[in-house]
Design a protein around this nucleic acid. Structure first.
Lengths: 237, 237
DNA sequence: AGTATCACGTGATACT
DNA sequence: AGTATCACGTGATACT
């Protein structure tokens, strides 16, 4: 792990989303919002977005059940009702926002876990560095893919050459035999396989070649940029 | 662009970070915080984090210059000085936080631009979907790399076979010549190249094979997981 | 002290 | 109305 602060899972604890700034107690989290293991012990754990303090919970629930505002025993039922309705609305809003936030943070953590070990080791991981490293990593992977796709083309040329060599061997052997000569011992080339492991495997998804530096090129059809990688050699020598 | 809401550049406009919630005027931004082009016209543009409204700017500046609190002509110099000092501190804090936020958002936008066109087209891009798609994309690229590295091994076998075939051709030709026979016309295999384009190019960074599903494997040395990709064939036939 | 990190709640806003 | 999005300012917190 080293100086890397990213730990595993375990949600930050919502503190009950009530009444704004003055009651905000802050969160005792480490970097990346992942709470230190024992920090959960000294604060109230609330798993939902329901408010837990600082105002009349009973009235809140009553208001939420849709009871008429005249049935409130408060001195000013209308104002109270408005207040609790508003509070309820805000709490729902906060919950939605919290969910969104968690989702984003989870994805960033996920990205952090996908980075090459070396990158993750030598960097102090926080949201910014994870995202930067992810950009760099994607660029590297794309570049590698482009290089390897180019090499794939070279391999196809090699296949052709091999086919021709194998054919030539048969021609020469025929010529020797036709003249009553023995085929000499010596180098014994291996038989060329008909199928490769990549063709036999069920995972033969085509590898897509993205347009380089021209993300909006109109000439790129969706399927036109596909390069089949499963064309190793099927030789009939 | 389609239903894609990601536009190009142009910072959201900080509204001058003064005095908390009651003065917050909100931001007229589109999705992903990128302001609609003409929305800048109906709000004050402030390029720094300096506050612009709702309190005595003069006093703020004076307080910031380190004048003694007794020189203020306010009715309560000490309280005012504390207030402006605190305000100043918060503004700096807000600026730092804003910088951090911009950085994160810029990186997410950058990720969004690196995604395959098809993905970017069919998805409604927001922070969450960009991050999810980025995770998926990295997984795909890693998988492609693994498949292609496996194929690279197969190509090396093919190289060996080709070398042997070429050698066999020479043996057979020698045998024919030794017996006074003409070498028959027929298939004419191409000469095997000594170098490939990938070797000639300066870009021969090795492609790293990350350990699969074992990110903490201790047996993986930093250099042990490298697979040279520049080993196409140097044949001496 | 200064310079970072983070989660949070909130209002503005958009689409349904 | 309900359910999302976003940027923002803020306090807690950590490291220097």
């Amino acid at each position: 792990m080293g100086s890397n602060h990213i730990g595993s899972g375990s949600r930050p604890i919502p503190s009950g989303g009530s009444s704004g700034n003055s009651l905000q107690s802050g969160s005792p989290n480490g970097p990346m919002g992942i709470p230190i293991a024992n920090s959960a012990s000294f604060r109230q754990i609330v798993s939902s977005s329901a408010p837990t303090s600082s105002f009349d919970m009973e009235a809140f629930v009553r208001g939420g059940r849709g009871s008429s505002n005249s049935s409130n025993q408060s001195t000013n039922p209308t104002v109270d009702s408005d207040f609790y309705r508003d509070r309820r609305k805000k709490d729902i809003h906060n919950m939605i926002e919290r969910r969104r936030r968690y989702n984003i943070n989870d994805r960033i953590k996920e990205l952090g876990l996908m980075l090459p070990k070396s990158t993750a080791e030598e960097m102090k991981l926080n949201k910014g560095t994870i995202l930067k490293a992810s950009c760099d990593y994607i660029r590297q992977l794309q570049q590698d893919r482009d290089v390897m796709l180019k090499q794939q083309h070279e391999r196809q040329q090699l296949e052709e050459a091999t086919k021709l060599y194998a054919k030539r061997v048969r021609e020469l052997e025929d010529a020797l035999q036709k003249n009553g000569l023995n085929i000499p011992e010596g180098t014994n080339p291996p038989p060329l396989p008909n199928k490769t492991s990549s063709e036999n495997s069920s995972n033969n998804r085509p590898i897509k070649q993205e347009p380089f530096e021209e993300p909006l090129s109109p000439s790129q059809t969706p399927t036109g940029s596909y390069v089949k990688i499963c064309q190793f050699f099927i030789l009939k020598v």
